[in-house]
Design a binder for these strands. Structure first.
Lengths: 346, 346
DNA sequence: TTGAAAGCGCTAACAA
DNA sequence: TTGTTAGCGCTTTCAA
């Protein structure tokens, strides 16, 4: 009653090639050839086998196939800092790269828990993945995952192991800062402030470095304010209060470069509250190009885009290449892009 | 030079149990028993085998194992509307449920592309997944995925097939609206407005229904305004303009129930711009409880939480149960929760 | 207590 | 053109 089996089948996982062969009245070998469109076979036989296969809903068992091939046609994606806004575009891009090549993705999440990471890794290795992608927030330069079987292609995306042997793809955040500063200079700013997140994030340090480097290169009146705080809108508002309230006109910054779009938005609002015109009196550049923020802010925010999607695509491409036998290593920084909106449009 | 093989091994996928057996000087059968801690064996033999296994880094090949078992210990998660904010907490919860049971997750994304969906499904079925989770935006009541092999456990999460045979888990959005309306009534509102998204979203219709049902049950002065627009902050601002500008005091709503937190935030800002006090003169409830919005808004937003995480956990639990042989079907609505913050605190 | 062998579902080499 | 057979790496009887 529970069991429905219209056609007698042998397998535990559904109809097998043996069933197909039997019903088509040919040998297993012949059925295999017919289904894989290789070897020479009478067209008639081929058709008959394929017809039977379709009728009984035969589908080759990938696991059995993989036992022969040296590939499992699967890769693992291990996120070591829960999934979030940043991981999504990367994953999406990886997906596009792999799906077209018939590679399936095992997705694992080990939020800062080495024990869980170990478990996931064990599982993935048991599944004989052909390659591994490790993603995280660029923030934590982390110990490399492992131990891994020698020769397993691994790539760190938006993440960076603290040994240098592996391949790591990150975005050039210092370069992003430079874009922002140059742009602010171009729209006429003379006194900049960098309002950013907590310094325990590597990204904050990188962006800070880029900020100061770029300041040194351009002609500015002022050495640049630097305020580190939280990643929140509230901090953006507070920072503006600190920079503007009770500060003489000539001392106030006329350009803000913010560590993310939330801070930038908070800053924009705070200026708005004070009747200071953006971009007229103060221009603002954010970071992340998160359209939820950039588009809702008043005015809409110019921002630096890390091109995470491009990062993901490149990672997928490289991993496939490594699975193909080539070797890559070292840290690669992909460029950021400036996206101009109202907050700097003068 | 490329090939490193400190210990001679036979397998294409790394050391095999045959290698372990050979090096330990026992038969394959014995090695298997020793490694699986079953059958009776001299402790000495067991130890020796396990030692060898560890030394050569042996790890059982899951695919080979699965050929024997009726389970592959994998499930597929098919997202039919790209990954986003809503899918994430669901996925995370699923992950927690499955990881503990040693089940790995194949993650696929077929953004509204039936062809791609078909491809992914083929792949998953080839991998002999033990179960399938289909996620999407609740919005689209969709044709069921398939064809699927009979007996494969499937569960739709935050998604709903248009035939009713399958199991579908969604959140009770109408119930969420009721919570919002009751709450607004309790804090003293007499004239409500529901500002929401586009009506092509099922969620919008459900929430609207709940809004009107609840209005009918409570004592209100006014039948309730209803404005459908976009899912954006800008729409929230525009809606407030429509409801308040040039409208007599007595006609203005004193409570806003918004279709999502972005709309709610836009509304809050617009009121702020007009010098209308929130929550003093107008109370606001949002939907989604997206803390990026609720916490950054001024004042912080009371909101309805769909408990997507709970949805995901329940889905995982149920799928595991179905894989275990039990049957579930029908649509289950899980309750929403009200999270009170400043925007309704009087 | 251990070994031998069959077989999971499939492919590929070799025979016929 | 088709069938036979030996594995892929593992588990599980059944013998020894």
């Amino acid at each position: 009653m529970t069991e429905e089996r219209p056609i007698d089948r042998t397998g535990r996982h559904g109809p097998t090639i043996r069933d197909v062969a039997r019903l088509a009245g040919v040998s297993i070998g012949t059925a295999s050839k017919a289904l894989n469109a290789n070897g020479r076979l009478k067209q008639e036989t081929r058709d008959k086998v394929q017809l039977v296969a379709r009728e009984i809903g035969y589908r080759p068992n990938d696991m059995a196939q993989s036992l022969h091939r040296t590939r499992s046609m699967t890769v693992g994606v291990l996120s070591t800092d829960s999934f979030g806004r940043f991981t999504l575009p990367i994953f999406q891009a990886l997906e596009e790269q792999f799906a077209d090549r018939g590679i399936a993705i095992f997705m694992c999440n080990a939020t800062d828990d080495p024990e869980r990471e170990r478990q996931h890794l064990d599982q993935l290795l048991g599944k004989r993945i052909d390659g591994l992608v490790v993603t995280a927030r660029r923030a934590d330069k982390r110990p490399p995952v492992g131990p891994l079987p020698p020769g397993l292609p691994v790539i760190y995306v938006y993440s960076q192991p603290d040994d240098d042997s592996a391949l790591s793809l990150i975005s050039d955040e210092a370069g992003g800062s430079r874009l922002a500063v140059e742009h602010l200079r171009q729209v006429g700013c003379r006194r900049l402030a960098h309002i950013t997140g907590p310094e325990r994030f590597e990204a904050v340090l990188e962006r800070k470095r880029g900020f100061h480097e770029a300041l040194a290169l351009e002609q500015f009146e002022h050495p640049g304010y630097y305020l580190s705080g939280k990643w929140s809108e509230a901090w953006g508002r507070d920072a503006v209060a600190a920079l503007f309230d009770g500060v003489a006109e000539a001392q106030r910054p006329d350009g803000l470069f913010c560590g993310n779009d939330q801070i930038a938005r908070g800053a924009a609002e705070a200026l708005r509250d004070r009747g200071i015109d953006v971009p007229g009196q103060v221009a603002i550049v954010g970071f992340d190009n998160w359209n939820v923020m950039t588009d809702a802010a008043r005015p809409q925010l110019t921002s630096i885009d890390m091109n995470l999607s491009a990062l993901g695509h490149e990672a997928g491409r490289l991993l496939v290449d490594m699975i193909g036998g080539n070797t890559h290593s070292g840290i690669r920084r992909l460029p950021c892009t400036l996206v101009v909106r109202q907050s700097t449009r003068r």
